[in-house]
């Protein structure tokens, strides 16, 4: 199939950017979206032009690196799918595709489709851990974790930190991301000791990094490639209220 691409090109953080048009010829429906872009880039390089710069790593849908807003939806709008797992069979011959970077104040564009997501790391550094003395390897079941708590924590831990929630949010808020990290540790015995401090520090770090406030649009959950639920935001809100009284 043949496609018309409109891709955001920006030659650096300070440079002005604009959409440029490219033709993708003879695209196989079995290719992933990133493989399609690889071929477009090969053509650009052959023609002596600068290739389109985009983030990618595992190409298995688990690393959270690929970050493109495709036709107005982070990761392209196929439910629970990252860009690398989005296949060209979900497009039709002759389609026009708009490809843009994540856009949020806290995600400055570095080049073309790559944004700086280190602000998500600042949230993690503020409290996305448990403090403990390391020593010899502990027995597997020394700390008992109830099965429902383990399942709940695993659902929250599905978050791959890609930032699609921020890109989709009309407020540029990282509340779904922050809540997944807070909730994951809040239900586990190991996370109890620092729970109150954690929720305050992580939400403060999000605010300080320039992420917006959550106003319950739920665009984040709809765009999340891992289907992380906004129930974790409700959990974060509960944890926050508990922390207010400590």
């Amino acid at each position: 199939m043949n496609l018309t691409l409109h891709v955001w090109r920006q030659n650096g953080a300070k440079a002005p950017g604009k959409l440029e048009q490219y033709e993708a010829k003879n695209v196989s429906p079995d290719q992933s979206f990133l493989e399609m872009l690889d071929e477009v880039n090969e053509q650009l390089i052959k023609n002596g032009k600068e290739p389109i710069v985009f983030d990618h790593d595992c190409r298995e849908g688990i690393c959270g690196m690929c970050s493109q807003v495709i036709n107005g939806v982070p990761h392209g709008g196929q439910e629970r799918t990252t860009v690398c797992q989005l296949h060209m069979r979900s497009f039709s011959d002759g389609d026009t595709i708009y490809i843009e970077p994540w856009r949020a104040l806290a995600f400055p564009i570095l080049k073309d489709l790559i944004v700086d997501r280190s602000n998500l790391e600042k949230i993690m550094q503020a409290g996305g851990y448990t403090s403990c003395h390391t020593g010899g390897v502990a027995d597997g079941n020394a700390i008992l974790v109830p099965q429902p708590a383990a399942e709940y924590a695993m659902d929250a831990a599905e978050c791959i930190g890609c930032g699609a929630c921020v890109a989709a949010c009309p407020n540029g808020s990282a509340m779904l991301y922050t809540s997944a990290k807070v909730a994951q540790l809040a239900v586990l015995p190991q996370g109890q000791a620092e729970a109150a401090q954690r929720v305050c520090d992580m939400t403060d770090a999000a605010q300080a990094a320039g992420f917006g406030n959550c106003s319950n649009h739920y665009e984040c959950q709809a765009a999340c490639p891992k289907g992380v639920s906004v129930k974790f935001i409700a959990k974060l809100n509960r944890e926050y209220q508990k922390a207010l009284f400590k």
């Binding site: 407020n171 540029g172 808020s173 917006g212 709809a222």
Partner: peptide, 21 residues
């Protein structure tokens, strides 16, 4: 909060499709 949220989202998508809001 509305002013802060507007500032946090430059809203410069050429194409934006909302799924839920």
């Amino acid at each position: 909060l509305t002013l802060e949220n507007k500032a946090a989202n430059p809203g410069a998508y050429a194409v934006k499709r909302n799924l839920k809001k």
